[in-house]
Amino acid sequence: MSSPTLPPLTIVHVVFSSRLAGAERHAFDLAAAQAAAGHRVHVVSGGSPQLRRVTPEAVTHHALPFPLMRGARLAALVRRLGADICHGHLGPACKAVARCTSAIRIGTLHVGYKPHQHERLDGLICVNRDQWATLGTYLGAARVVYNWPPQPMNAPRGPRLREQLQLGGDQVLVGTVARLHRSKGVDLLIRAFAQYAPSHAALAILGEGPQERELRRLAGGHPRIHFLGFRDDVDVALADMDLFVSPSREEALPLAVLEAMRAGLPILATRTDGLQQLLAEAPATLVPVEDVTALGTALQARIRGLRLPGHAREVSRVRVMYDMGLYDRDIAVARIESFYRSLLPVEGQARRSGPSLDGSYA
């Protein structure tokens, strides 16, 4: 909860995505936490039914469905709401937030710093230390606040994943959760799995996105590669997996990997900047980015090390204890609020401006 000595804030989060993926789930989970702390919280979307459906009960949803003059319309809405903070998530939202001069303008770097999207914002939240180090000539304030695994969504319970895929007890289930976009490298995983995975392994791909048709063609109807689309019950699905793979070409600090860590899954990942930081001290396997042979060889070894053909269902699955201390939701949400308040005008003084970088995480 907010300190009783500090007044609640009016916070507007802006998310113009059409689908719910990691950055969007982060934004909605942050909004829910801030509303629970007593703040007046709003979310502005482009009108996606999926995003409207997951808006927390205590958060007010607003739709700006057409791109034409969206920045000006957002600025008018933010002014009407009397917002203290306008917080953008992903590039299109951050560009629109820059127009909202009546509030403190914040952006979270879910991907990376791009001057044309972020340089006019008052403050930036970096989700890893490498991002903070690449801000260059950015003149606003910045702080490192690591992502956290969002709270599980209240999803309707259907068949468990292994039951849905009709897997036997001696079969290994490899899984990934990702937006189906080239940056996520799912094509690399499909190629590696098809070439190197033993016959007792199956691959579950959870997510949707613009590359789905291309990825299905690449899989070519492989009987052990399953496209399962978007799922509300990610935590339940992860509990049925034996190995989690993140084959990304670029990553900041992916929520899917944090959720896999929370589930205790063994992890195989590519050596992107964000994942190197996240998994530096963890018992995970890291391979070079965009190297199908290295990914496939490691995949084969990890699968064979998990369960051998012919083992009974009673054979224990491997579970890993990860140190999640740096990725605590309550601490991160409090740190974001502290960052907000550090940028608010002090009575009788102008709004803070100019460079102020804080790469620490305390």
Rank of each mutant, 00 (worst) to 15 (best):
S18G: 14
L357W: 15
T5H: 13
A334Q: 15
V186D: 00
D358I: 02
P210H: 05
F339Y: 10
G38N: 06
A362S: 14
L228G: 09
A96I: 00
I267E: 00
E290I: 06
A334K: 15
P223N: 07
L238A: 07
H226R: 12
Y113P: 04
R191Y: 06
A294T: 07
L135S: 02
H89T: 06
R335D: 13
P67T: 04
G47L: 04
G348H: 08
T108V: 10
R341A: 04
E250V: 14
E163S: 14
T10V: 15
H116D: 14
V97S: 02
F28I: 07
A202Q: 15
E24G: 02
R351S: 06
Q50L: 14
Q117A: 13
Q166I: 02
P345S: 08
G207E: 05
T108C: 07
A76V: 10
I125H: 03
A103H: 01
H87V: 05
V177S: 00
L6K: 15
P223E: 08
V245N: 00
L121A: 01
Q50R: 11
A96D: 11
Q300H: 15
L343G: 03
L109S: 06
Q164A: 11
Q117T: 12
G325Y: 03
D235E: 14
D240L: 02
G107I: 06
Y196K: 07
R182Y: 11
G47T: 12
T272G: 04
R335L: 12
G91I: 09
R179F: 04
L299I: 10
S356Q: 15
F16E: 02
A237P: 03
G175N: 05
L161A: 09
A75S: 11
I106R: 04
T297M: 13
A141R: 08
D358Q: 12
N128L: 01
L135I: 14
V234M: 09
H87Q: 01
S3G: 09
L265D: 03
